[in-house]
């Protein structure tokens, strides 16, 4: 079995062309898609801390560029520590923050490369998720769907992306997790000292922000009157370093605003991601 998996990986590697993009922010929505035939593997370590507890999770993401505008992804988690009362949020645009397995399609429906190193583009994301644990915060968890759209500008110096998304959980055993509309804004900058030409390392810094508006969950067919999960605005820095086929990004988000009336407040989110373009 191991040998078969290894052979499949080798075959995929052999038929894949090296990809290009996938070099955006850590938390916020972005637009770049892989090259046609491109293959990308990511490992991410994520943590989310509340006043009471802290979660730890590893995630693996495999991505493939069907065309230069169409990318498919699948991500699986290894949960090290789950929160008993996990906030309803997403890890980033192709990662759930909880223990769900997720498959997604990215479609870059608009792209205008209008200068050397400059482009303006828009991407739509559609995902389906399935939970790895039956309940979350005492509510039965079902499969969910997620859709998002983002648009942005990339250059050799400045980056900016704005977008919004929506996650909807289906009913499970008379319970239903509330939905999750969210918005994302990212601004990035590459200082002059990091403007060295390829193949020198390439660094950039982002300021990322997320606004999350989780809906009310249903338990045994009844809306939960006081939801433990409130609206939040998170903001924080992230850093991205790229060298050849490798990329590393790390960053944190901190609450700028949260209106949680009951339950532990969120303190911070940490994340680190390593990418390899096969």
């Amino acid at each position: 079995m191991k040998r078969t998996a290894f052979l499949i990986l080798l075959t995929v590697t052999a038929i894949s062309k090296v990809s290009a993009q996938g070099h955006g922010p850590l938390y916020g929505l972005q637009t770049p898609t892989l090259a046609k035939g491109g293959f990308d593997f990511n490992v991410a370590a994520m943590s989310l801390a509340t006043e009471d507890d802290q979660s730890f999770m590893l995630r693996y993401i495999w991505s493939y560029g069907v065309t230069e505008d169409l990318q498919i992804n699948i991500t699986t988690p290894t949960m090290v520590n789950r929160l008993s009362e996990a906030p309803r949020t997403r890890g980033n645009n192709n990662m759930p923050a909880n223990g769900d397995i997720e498959a997604s399609v990215w479609y870059r429906f608009f792209s205008n490369a209008f200068g050397v190193g400059k482009r303006f583009e828009s991407t739509a994301i559609l995902s389906v998720s399935t939970p790895t644990k039956e309940s979350r915060g005492g509510i039965n968890v079902s499969n969910s769907i997620h859709g998002a759209i983002s648009t942005g500008y990339a250059s050799r110096t400045w980056y900016a992306w704005v977008g919004g998304g929506y996650q909807y959980y289906f009913e499970e055993g008379n319970d239903q997790l509330g939905d999750l509309p969210y918005a994302s804004l990212v601004v990035g900058y590459r200082p002059n000292i990091f403007m060295g030409d390829y193949p020198k390392p390439d660094w950039r810094v982002f300021v990322e922000s997320l606004a999350e508006f989780p809906g009310t969950s249903t338990s045994e067919g009844q809306l939960i009157p006081i939801d433990q999960r409130g609206k939040k605005v998170m903001i924080g820095p992230s850093f991205l370093g790229l060298y050849g086929a490798w990329g590393i990004s790390f960053g944190a988000l901190f609450p700028l605003y949260q209106d949680i009336t009951q339950g532990p407040k969120e303190e911070y989110r940490l994340s680190m991601n390593i990418s390899y373009w096969l």
């Binding site: 990809s19 490369a113 050397v116 482009r119 990339a154 373009w277």
Partner: peptide, 10 residues
């Protein structure tokens, strides 16, 4: 046009 990062060039 449109190439803005090291993995793009790679």
């Amino acid at each position: 046009f449109g190439m803005d990062c090291a993995p793009c060039a790679y």
